[in-house]
Design a protein around this nucleic acid. Structure first.
Length: 423
RNA sequence: GGAGAGAUGUCCGAGUGGCUUAAGGAGCACGCUUGGAAAGCGUGUGUACUUCAAAAGGGUACCGCGGGUUCGAAUCCCGCUCUCUCCGCCA
């Protein structure tokens, strides 16, 4: 949620930048400014009323002590009127606040200046492409065939237990999952991240804090009986560790990494998109989360983006980096890089990581602030990125490294796997 | 799931209707003191909204959350949430 102060101070700038997302927000922003003015005016009158009532109450107390009952009675009558008025104003005030909130909560984050204009994935900037494309022979198989042939993943069995999109990993397939998780965690720790194991069920406040609620309620699994949600990403619990927290400037950078399973309903997905490991209801992901000062957050974003590239290089996967256009960015993001790996047999790019700077959009909801050296309070900036999401990495590893007699595993994983090839 | 206790500032902790502008202590910051430190002494020490051109200063709200009683509520009443202890169940 954008802070109202930003709108007060930079309304024209915000309108311009929302246009990068293809939004004409002028009337909305103007409406918000009007509501803000209304709210302020009511607040002023209300405070005056309350101040007066406070003074009278004190005077009545003093009079009663001096047993001036008649005079106290006169004042008491006056406060009754004030009280009625205050009640009315309070009602109005909370209505105005609610209205303002309802409008603010619908405004997406303002894209950073450098975000390309556009609406569809075709408008994304390809920042760079790296790594050797796999050379496969004509009968190369997609990962779901390989998974079956080498008994790595059983999709049908998952259907029996839960439903489509809940694969069962078996044998070397399961071992590969565990190896990747450990590899990713160890790499992150080497890069200075603190490992955390957060809960994977979250409450409503947490869902609101990072922006999943109220917007994307339908994309999360809801545990109705206790009113909790299964996390769609570790971003939610890890970022929410800092909800209602006031940091000191010298605490930055705050770097956390966590492995969790992730759960997504993915309602409305179908066809090739959901084949094999391409899109699942449950998958594993290692997520990096950083908190930074506004001055540094874009440097941090670049650092994170480069870090994720390093992982892909170590795994030997051909990848490209996209800077998402306004229309393709998430509601909460100010700038997002997507990392895609090339999946040799499917012959397409698969998104395996999304690295974003949310600026103060989440921290405003989270009430995540820090005090600078002068003791001034500011909203912190939040950033996160997948480092990495497993299923599509597995898909690309299986497809790109297949040869007639099996599948080679990247060297960095050998110590984690205990084997070098799947045969 | 059952029974009981509790929720106060950065922390501990007092506070059962106006003397609370939340006592007292610890911590932290600054100053004095010191060769330096400790001790000691002094001063300060939250958040949000709002007022003000700005600073200084002022106003309002906040003692788990939401209502209510009252001229006046941390304090009384009602509802909720959470935490702790014991019991039960259990990895």
């Amino acid at each position: 949620m954008i802070h109202i102060n930003l709108i007060r101070e930079n309304s024209e700038d915000i309108i311009e930048r929302l246009a990068i997302k293809g939004l004409d927000a002028r009337s909305e922003i103007m409406g918000i400014l009007n509501l803000d003015g209304e709210r302020k005016a009511i607040k002023q009158r209300l405070d005056q009323n309350l101040a007066e009532a406070n003074i009278l109450a004190r005077q009545i107390g003093d009079m009663l002590k001096q047993s001036k009952k008649e005079e106290a009675e006169v004042l008491r009558n006056r406060t009754i009127k004030l009280k009625e008025r205050s009640k009315e104003l309070e009602q109005k005030f909370s209505e105005a606040e609610q209205k303002l909130f309802d409008k603010l909560v619908l405004i997406p984050n303002v894209p950073s200046r450098s975000v390309p204009k556009g609406k569809t994935p075709q408008d994304n900037d390809i920042v760079l492409t790296n790594g050797a494309m796999p050379v496969l022979n004509a009968n190369a198989q997609p990962h779901w065939e390989l998974a079956k042939r080498y008994d790595l993943i059983d999709f049908e069995l998952g259907v029996k237990i839960s439903g489509a999109g809940f694969p069962v990993y078996k044998g070397k397939g399961a071992r590969l999952q565990r190896a990747l998780i450990n590899f990713f965690l160890d790499e992150a720790i080497k890069a200075g991240y603190q490992e955390v194991q957060p809960p994977i069920l979250i409450n409503e406040d947490s869902g609101f804090g990072t922006g999943q609620l109220p917007d994307k309620e339908g994309q999360m699994y809801h545990v109705g009986i206790d009113s909790l949600f299964l996390i769609p990403t570790a971003e939610v619990p890890i970022t929410n560790l800092y909800r209602d927290v006031i940091l000191k400037e010298e605490d930055f950078p705050v770097k956390n990494v966590g492995y969790t399973p992730c759960f997504r309903r993915e309602a409305g997905s179908y066809g090739q998109e959901v084949r094999g490991l391409n899109r699942l209801h449950q998958f594993d992901k290692v997520e990096i989360v950083q908190l930074a000062s506004p001055e540094n957050s874009y440097t941090v974003l670049e650092e994170m983006q480069t870090y994720v590239q390093g992982l892909l290089q170590k795994l030997g996967l051909p990848y490209r980096v996209l800077k998402l256009c306004g229309g393709d960015m998430s509601f909460a993001s100010a700038l997002t890089y997507d990392m895609e790996v090339y999946s040799g047999a499917q012959q397409k790019w698969l998104e395996v990581s999304s690295v974003s700077n949310f600026e103060s959009f989440q921290s405003n909801r989270l009430k995540l602030r820090y005090k600078d050296k002068e003791g001034q309070m500011h909203l912190a900036h939040t950033l996160n990125g997948s480092a990495l999401a497993l299923p599509r990495i597995v898909a690309a590893l299986l497809e790109n490294n297949q040869f007639s007699g099996g599948i080679k595993m990247p060297e960095v994983l050998h110590p984690y796997l205990g084997f070098t090839e799947i045969v």
